[in-house]
Amino acid sequence: MQQSRTDQCIAVVDDDPSIRETLEGFLEAEGYDICCAADADELDRLMLVRPVDLVLLDIRLPGRDGLSLTRDLREKSEMGIILITGRNDRVDRILGLEYGADDYIAKPIDERELLPRVRNLLRRVEHSRGVAAPSTLSFGQFRLDTRGRSLTDPAGENVPLTTAEFDLLLVLVRNAGHVMSRERLISAIKRRRFESMDRTVDTLVRRLRRKIEADPDNPHLIKTVHGTGYLFSGPAAGDTRTPTKRSTSR
């Protein structure tokens, strides 16, 4: 049965035409607007003429590979990124998450598994673009807008966050002063369980530290509790103490 159409566009980027055709047919039947590309350059050309909300991205593209493309896309967009990987691409999957991917799915692709991942990620992307009246949480002079899903630093500048980074930071801030296990963090941010769940949380924490800590190697806001998880120790909302300034180094 044909699903009602949406205005959300999904790009399928894979050099295997059979995979492109299969995913295009399946997702179009679910009501999504689909565009396809065989490599990174073709995706770049497509994105010049149409907005893309989510990319299904083969990690082993010819030329500019999926990891490099993930990093490039994340630098300029908060679109959803799901990597398409081989069963044995564990290291590349971790790197992909480090570079800003939101999720991955292994070949051969199970369409019953892919669809809820696509739906959930598109929902988060759409929510992150919302313009509802702000409801803010603060730590020092950082401001976390829970409705607009944005973070501003002490200078009032926007701190770019991926959907996964925002979700994790929100959970940590809301539970400031309490140790959060990796299992609880994964459950709280409603992400699918990855093959290496602990490393997924660790990767997101490293990325957050680079964005909000004065010295990411000696963090004062997101502290590691060895053998357990993480503790957010930033000042409570409304605290007027002088905050730690964010480092400009990356």
Rank of each mutant, 00 (worst) to 15 (best):
residue 150 S to T: 14
residue 101 A to S: 14
residue 158 N to M: 11
residue 168 L to F: 02
residue 151 L to I: 03
residue 181 S to E: 04
residue 184 R to L: 09
residue 186 I to G: 05
residue 193 R to C: 14
residue 195 E to R: 15
residue 156 G to L: 11
residue 153 D to R: 05
residue 189 I to G: 12
residue 185 L to H: 11
residue 175 N to S: 14
residue 98 E to M: 08
residue 98 E to G: 01
residue 97 L to K: 07
residue 171 V to H: 09
residue 143 R to F: 06
residue 151 L to G: 07
residue 108 P to K: 03
residue 191 R to Q: 15
residue 106 A to E: 14
residue 138 S to P: 12
residue 146 T to G: 05
residue 164 A to E: 07
residue 170 L to T: 03
residue 116 P to N: 03
residue 177 G to N: 06
residue 144 L to T: 05
residue 95 L to M: 11
residue 164 A to V: 08
residue 108 P to L: 00
residue 102 D to A: 06
residue 95 L to S: 13
residue 119 R to T: 11
residue 107 K to G: 02
residue 121 L to E: 04
residue 109 I to S: 05
residue 155 A to E: 12
residue 168 L to S: 00
residue 192 R to P: 05
residue 102 D to S: 13
residue 139 F to K: 02
residue 177 G to C: 08
residue 186 I to P: 01
residue 180 M to R: 11
residue 192 R to D: 11
residue 149 R to N: 04
residue 98 E to T: 03
residue 177 G to V: 07
residue 159 V to Y: 01
residue 121 L to D: 05
residue 185 L to F: 07
residue 162 T to Y: 01
residue 105 I to N: 01
residue 191 R to T: 14
residue 100 G to M: 10
residue 135 S to L: 14
residue 165 E to M: 05
residue 156 G to D: 03
residue 96 G to I: 10
residue 169 L to N: 09
residue 111 E to F: 12
residue 165 E to W: 01
residue 131 V to G: 09
residue 160 P to A: 00
residue 115 L to Q: 13
residue 112 R to P: 00
residue 117 R to T: 06
residue 165 E to H: 01
residue 124 R to Y: 03
residue 122 L to Q: 02
residue 123 R to F: 07
residue 165 E to R: 00
residue 159 V to H: 08
residue 122 L to Y: 02
residue 195 E to Y: 15
residue 179 V to R: 08
residue 187 S to I: 08
residue 176 A to C: 08
residue 96 G to L: 09
residue 186 I to H: 07
residue 165 E to Q: 12
residue 111 E to M: 11
residue 150 S to H: 04
residue 159 V to E: 06
residue 131 V to W: 05
residue 138 S to V: 08
residue 137 L to C: 06
residue 179 V to A: 15
residue 189 I to L: 13
residue 109 I to R: 06
residue 106 A to V: 05
residue 164 A to T: 10
residue 131 V to T: 15
residue 193 R to S: 15
residue 105 I to F: 02
residue 181 S to H: 00
residue 128 S to W: 03
residue 136 T to G: 04
residue 168 L to K: 00
residue 132 A to R: 14
residue 153 D to E: 05
residue 192 R to I: 10
residue 142 F to E: 08
residue 95 L to F: 08
residue 110 D to S: 07
residue 151 L to A: 04
residue 155 A to R: 12
residue 194 F to H: 15
residue 95 L to W: 06
residue 121 L to P: 07
residue 96 G to F: 09
residue 134 P to A: 01
residue 106 A to L: 02
residue 193 R to E: 15
residue 96 G to E: 15
residue 173 V to T: 11
residue 183 E to P: 00
residue 178 H to N: 14
residue 150 S to M: 05
residue 103 D to L: 03
residue 129 R to F: 02
residue 193 R to A: 14
residue 99 Y to M: 13
residue 192 R to L: 10
residue 96 G to H: 12
residue 175 N to H: 15
residue 189 I to S: 06
residue 103 D to T: 03
residue 168 L to V: 12
residue 173 V to W: 06
residue 189 I to A: 07
residue 168 L to Y: 04
residue 183 E to N: 02
residue 123 R to W: 03
residue 136 T to M: 08
residue 158 N to I: 10
residue 149 R to C: 13
residue 137 L to V: 04
residue 148 G to I: 05
residue 183 E to F: 08
residue 175 N to P: 03
